[in-house]
Each structure stands twice: as structure tokens, then as C-alpha cells.
């Protein structure tokens, strides 16, 4: 083999099952122009041999779209949380270290179980309470400005980067994290979604809710979709405060806490 053949040097976390201990394994895969972390992992599938020349098993990881829109492939790359499919080899220092997210249980190697995120979406009722799917004509009108604001929030792909970076989000607490708070803002800012704003605000009130946020702002810095998470947190903080006051009044008047629109 000629000496100027280039390789990509990777150091990858291996862990066969959730309960087994993990370790690093090193790989050298042929360099290709335009390669990214996932294309290197695919190369290892086609030739599962480590840097020591020993046969090994292909690495396990989660991915699907390969264009940073499905949210599957979040991992720690050189110690920083990001999406693997858009991590271009040319822009990374070698050896490239790949580790699974630490805030979620590892299922194997680089794959983790993020089901908690989907459960938290249930908790905050991240949906619009539709009457039904039959044809009821168009939805409510709203301005292009509101659309633009909602659109960005709606690109959240449940990747978990914001949670990985958040000092307040741990495996043993109930904090719902920045993404879920931001989803509440998304649904509360829809004209009909706002009908259930109080319910969502309440979901952010108790333990694991918005007051757990320490305002460290790590989340916004790592979000691959550049979602304005700190603005969402600020707005929802205010909405929750208003809600608390409202709840007091409503109690006095013996009414249901209803329409508390977006802050």
C-alpha cells in the first residue's frame, strides 16, 4: 500500500448492552472527500476491523435521514454534542472521538434511548386538540410574522442536544428541558392551540417544570436547528407567572382557568 494513502482515525465508544461496561475502540478508515462521521461508520460496517487489525463487530448507532432533519444521530463528537450526519471529517480534529449521549441510557455503542423526550411531549400536551379529521374548512388565519416565529420552533427534531448540554437535566430528575418548554410556546402561540394554553402552562409549573431551569443558556448554543430556546424559556417563564396569578383569581371566582394566550 502506498504511504500517502490517507486515513481517518476514530476512537469510538463500544458498549454491547445497557448493562455491560464500555470501552474505546480505535479505527482507521480510508479517507474520502466529503466524508462525514456517518459515512465512516458505514465504512466500518463494510470492513469491521479495528486499528489493531482485529476483527470486530460493526458499530451501532442511530441515523436515518442523513441530512439533519430526523434528529436520530445526536452524539458527542470530540466531546461536543452534535449531529453526526452533518459532522464533516475535513472540519474535525483527529483522532475523532465518538461517544453516546450521557443524559440517556445507552442501548448499544453510540445508540441511546430517548423515549423520555417523547413522554415529556405527552406531559406538556404538545398537540392541538382537534375536533376531528373531517373537513371543517381552513384553520384560523394568522400573520406571516407569527408563522415565521412558529416555524422555527416547529423545526425541533427531538434530537436531545439541548438536554445533553443542560446542567439541570439529569438522568435521575424529572426536568422536561428546553425543547419541551419551547414546544409549549409553539402550541400556545397557535390561535386554537391557545385554547389549551393553561393546561400546558400548568404542566410546566410543578416539579420538573420550568423553574428547574438555571438559565445557563447552554441549550441554545448547541441546538442544531438554532431554535431560540432562551427566548422560549423567557416567554414561558412569564406565561407561567401570569398563569399563577390567574389561577388565584379564577379560584376566587370559582371558574375554570381558561384562555391564557401566549406571552
Amino acid at each position: 500500500m502506498s504511504t500517502n494513502d490517507r486515513f481517518v482515525h476514530l476512537k469510538i465508544w463500544r458498549q454491547e448492552s445497557p448493562t455491560q461496561a464500555g470501552y474505546f475502540e480505535e479505527f482507521k478508515v480510508p479517507y474520502k472527500k466529503g466524508a462525514n462521521v456517518i459515512s465512516c461508520l458505514m465504512e466500518i460496517q463494510r470492513n469491521p476491523v479495528n486499528a489493531q487489525g482485529q476483527k470486530t463487530t460493526p458499530v451501532n448507532w442511530d441515523s436515518n435521514c442523513l441530512e439533519e432533519v430526523c434528529g436520530s444521530c445526536a452524539m458527542n463528537i470530540n466531546g461536543r454534542v452534535r449531529m453526526a450526519c452533518s459532522a464533516l471529517i475535513d472540519k474535525l480534529e483527529q483522532p475523532i472521538t465518538l461517544e453516546p449521549l450521557k443524559k440517556f441510557p445507552v442501548t448499544r455503542d453510540l445508540a441511546v434511548d430517548r423515549n423520555r423526550m417523547f413522554e415529556d411531549l405527552k406531559k406538556v400536551k404538545a398537540w392541538i386538540a382537534l375536533d376531528g379529521t373531517h373537513n371543517l374548512g381552513p384553520g384560523p388565519r394568522y400573520s406571516p410574522k407569527v408563522q415565521a416565529e412558529r416555524y422555527v420552533l416547529s423545526t425541533c427534531m427531538t434530537c436531545g442536544c439541548c438536554l445533553e448540554a443542560c446542567p439541570q437535566y439529569t438522568r435521575d430528575n424529572d426536568f422536561v428541558g428546553a425543547f419541551a418548554i419551547s414546544q409549549v410556546r409553539l402550541f400556545n402561540s397557535h390561535p386554537t392551540g391557545a385554547f389549551n394554553a393553561a393546561d400546558r402552562n400548568h404542566a410546566l409549573m410543578g416539579e420538573g417544570g420550568i423553574q428547574d431551569c438555571g438559565k445557563a443558556q447552554n441549550c441554545v448554543r448547541v441546538c442544531p436547528k438554532e431554535i431560540p430556546l432562551t427566548t422560549s424559556i423567557m416567554r414561558m417563564n412569564r406565561a407561567v407567572t401570569v398563569q399563577t396569578v390567574k389561577d388565584l383569581f379564577m379560584k376566587d371566582e370559582g371558574e375554570e382557568a381558561g384562555h391564557s394566550g401566549p406571552a
Partner: peptide
């Protein structure tokens, strides 16, 4: 058209015209 309206009601942030229509 009914499918698009349904999605609109579900909250899809479709781009809008100045008048707020789809």
C-alpha cells in the same frame, strides 16, 4: 384541499400570504 385545511388546523406552520391565508 380538505387535507391541507386539516393540516392547517393541526397547527402546521404553513407559509402565509400578507392577509394570513395559506
Amino acid at each position: 384541499p380538505g387535507i391541507i385545511y386539516m393540516l392547517d388546523r393541526m397547527g402546521v406552520p404553513f407559509n402565509r400570504t400578507p392577509e394570513g391565508n395559506l
